[in-house]
């Protein structure tokens, strides 16, 4: 599984040079809802719930510490 993920990442990185837009083609990408984290408060609340209920955290951003979460 790990090796598949790494191979997929390498393939995707090599594809980066083929992708992209000109500055004047960014009208859609600049919309707030197209931001990768378009609702940071929602993400933070979700991360806190799942951090306290599951054994994984982070990925999108830093996992960190921050609560006793019994």
């Amino acid at each position: 599984m790990r090796s598949i993920c790494i191979v997929l990442m390498v393939l995707a990185l090599s594809a980066c040079s083929q992708w992209g837009v000109k500055p004047w083609e960014r009208s859609v990408l600049s919309k707030p809802e197209m931001a990768l984290d378009s609702s940071p408060l929602t993400s933070a609340l979700d991360d806190h719930i799942y951090f306290s209920k599951e054994a994984s955290s982070g990925g999108r951003a830093f996992g960190g510490g921050g609560c006793g979460c019994n």
Binding site: M9, A12, L13, C16, W19, G20, V21, E25, R26, S27, V28, L29, M34, L36, G58, G59, R60, A61, F62, G63, G64, G65
Partner: peptide
């Protein structure tokens, strides 16, 4: 007490005028 150190590497790529893609690798040591 405990300490946690996180390291994060990321790449965000615009694919075309309608889509984008992100990859992150993160390492966490507690």
């Amino acid at each position: 007490s405990k300490t946690t150190v996180d390291v994060l590497f990321g790449i965000t790529q615009v694919i075309d005028k309608n889509s984008l893609l992100q990859f992150n690798y993160s390492f966490s040591q507690a």
